[in-house]
Amino acid sequence: MIALLTRDLKLAVRAGGGFGLGLAFFLIVVILVPFSVGPESVLLSRIAPGILWLGALLACLLSLDRILALDWEDGTLDLVATSPLPLEGVVAVKSLAHWITTGLPLVIAAPVFGLLLNLPAPGYVWLILSLAVGTPALSVVGTFGAALTVGLKRGGLLLSLLVLPLYVPTLIFGAELARRGAEGQATTTPLLMLAGITFGAIALLPFASALVLRINLR
């Protein structure tokens, strides 16, 4: 399992498209927003939590089809399926590797991007917290989508269509948590809901992903 994780991280670093790509995409989205809505700092600070969450979500989406498709193409998935590793564990490790290469950099870089959008000072802690709690769910749900579309040629677009609706609960509560934090309101309810969604997804979806993966491997 650890070998699989280190291999995936190594591949993400060497093959590119891991750490850098999602982050650069996030940066561009955040920079484009003031161009499209105008440089009024009051308006920007009001919409900042929502924009940051939407950007993070899209940046996550960008690398989803790489989670399993590459291993499918070169036959690694067949060989892993016949190895002693349980497939549930394999997809869980793949989700973790995706989160470390995509979600974690977003969490760390979010304060800088918040600055670009004039996020109110009390909002930074909550923004980081909401992303840290919410992005694992994005990776796990994304892995499920990747498992569903793994055998398809050019399944990337279909993957986005399948996964984006599933991201709605995380987006609602994540953005709500960041917004309430920025405006100094009570944050317990959205935080608990967000954490609940994430832990629920982590607990259940690897089993679903492994199941659809087995069917797709036939």
Binding site: I2, A3, L4, R7, K10, L11, R14, A15, D71, E73, D74, G75, T76, D78, L79, V80, T82, S83, P84, L85
Partner: peptide
Amino acid sequence: YAAHSDGLKSMLSVEENLRFWASVF
């Protein structure tokens, strides 16, 4: 099981590929 495709990662060295599969098993 060994099939038509070898399950090799082109960005890993020969040794890393072999060591990965060894540790999986």
